[in-house]
Amino acid sequence: MKQLRSPEPQQTPRGGVRLKIDGLDVTVDAGTSVLEAARFLGLEIPTLCHVDGLSAYGGCRLCVVEIGKGDKARLVSSCTYPAEDGLVARTNTKRVVRTRKMLIELLVSIAPSSKVIQDLAARFGVQKCRFKPKYEDCILCGLCVRMCQEQMMSGAIDFVGRGQKRRITTPFDKKSELCRTCGGCMYICPVCTLRCQGPSAPTDVCGSCVCMEPTCIEKFDDYMCYLGPTGVCGTCVSEGKKVEGSGGDKELCHTANTTQQRQP
């Protein structure tokens, strides 16, 4: 692996920091995270709530690395921990591996139907889940919140509540005026293929998916899907429409897809 070693600098460049990851020296700009430094070296650290282009959040904790020595050794999330001069980080210690596996097990228990999570489990050798599965879709990774805020410049959704009551929604659970129904939240979501568009009981079947007729063109005189082929997102189709037989007369209803995934 010698060729991966970054060239030894004569001295730390201005504003740069030198650290050691898995025994390899690396010099990076100040403000770089340990995760970025490790990836620069080609080291694999799994992530779930981290996506380039969005701010680091440190919620899923999958990217933990061990820093420090002896009694003072501790785990930190590499996506949020800044590279510091003289920092020694290890990405695959016994403690890291054990922690990572348990975290993936917890993720599987929340959203066993997610392909992203199942792939992580397979990749990191998690073969069983000892907790009762919840079949919840949202793992509260916050990607959609940051996508909406930072890339779509909207800020229509955010976390509310704390602890067990934490969830992601629009202000006061009402349809947000800021939401342009761009679908960015669904695009980024690692758990559901089509993310629910609003708060309604999980058992509701709105049936909007069977009615694939975009309404945004009427409303905005343009397709409002920015991220995929136009019209595929499907969220707009239920906008302002009542679907017969759905039993609901909400203006905004969520896709049936979430309900289907819920079945074990």
Partner: peptide, 21 residues
């Protein structure tokens, strides 16, 4: 603690809930 965890870290939010369970 499972109610007072802010809910950001998976380990704390889900971990305390599972420990309670």
């Amino acid at each position: 603690l499972r109610d007072e965890s802010c809910g950001r870290c998976l380990s704390c939010r889900e971990g305390t809930a599972r420990l309670y369970e």
